[in-house]
Design a protein around this nucleic acid. Structure first.
Lengths: 161, 161
DNA sequence: TATTGTTATACTCTATAACTATA
DNA sequence: TATAGTTATAGAGTATAACAATA
């Protein structure tokens, strides 16, 4: 049996990749309020027009209170607007402004370069494979997310000696 | 052109996966000081016996000051020891105790279950493919990490309008 | 003077709960 | 009463810098 180093650890690999992605993404989105998360909010606002902020937050996997701050900053920069919902005035619909869509297009262009940088170890075919596998995983996990309970998952395993 | 949703975004996929992994990993390592990061420290201590704490921190991609706290907790639980280096008394060699190795074996068993849970959307072949691709990516990124400068990478791209 | 590791401090991020306005 | 969103507060996590010991 081979003595395995930490680089064989799935968590280590994910951590290295995720940190590198965050750094590249934040560099690529510098100038957009909220950096990479601001861009994600902008992208959902522009492409999906969620009916409520809660729906937007759930979609991105962030807290609704965090979203408030991000939206404040994006609104101040005139990249998105909070529009009242005539059907239910408790709701705010988040829509991207024309300026927001321009920023998003530019951000997408820069993000493509950032992703190229992060994935530079892989050829085109492997990149496509990785994206597909990550897509399947994320889709399954995100669907299970709200009900997901790792404590229950681990309940019958027992404790450390 | 298809309107793409946020689930097509690489960052969103990575974020969903990484958050799910962290939750599962922390549940699997509950009882080990520092949770999933404590286990990583323990794993490196047991399998690589790094010569200095700085080397250990660099290997895990965490700050040396954070490592101090993690080692304090792991030491108090008698899972690792800080041994003075006779060759250079500034250094501390971190080694796992027998008890630490027992905890690590148990943690590995539970981590395998946690990973099964996170990867449950994929079959065995796809899991192996994913692990291999992540391994290549992380190896490349970790090697480049110390010198990596995303600001320089983005320098010639320009700014938002 | 440079380096290892520790400590202290401050800053960011996140989570919790309280509050408003609508329903 | 219940929900959408906001605000305020506290907690955890992280980074910065100052410090002690050794080289």
């Amino acid at each position: 049996m081979t003595i395995q180093g930490i680089e064989d650890d799935l968590g280590w690999r994910l951590g290295v990749l995720f940190r590198a992605y965050l750094r590249a993404a934040d560099a690529a989105t510098a100038g957009i309020p909220g950096d990479h998360r601001g861009r994600q909010v902008l992208a959902v606002a522009a492409r999906e027009e969620p009916r409520t902020q809660s729906a937007l937050a759930l979609r991105l996997g962030i807290d609704k209170t965090v979203l408030t701050y991000l939206l404040d900053a994006l609104t101040e920069a005139a990249l998105v607007e909070r529009q009242p919902d005539p059907d239910d005035r408790r709701n705010r619909r988040v829509v991207a402004t024309a300026r927001g869509r321009e920023f998003l297009a530019e951000a997408d262009r820069r993000m493509a370069l950032a992703e190229d940088h992060v994935l530079s170890s892989l050829g085109d075919a492997d990149r496509a494979t990785l994206r597909a596998l990550l897509g399947r995983l994320a889709a399954g996990l995100h669907a299970a997310d709200p009900v997901d309970d790792p404590c229950r998952m681990m309940m019958e395993i027992g404790s450390y000696s």
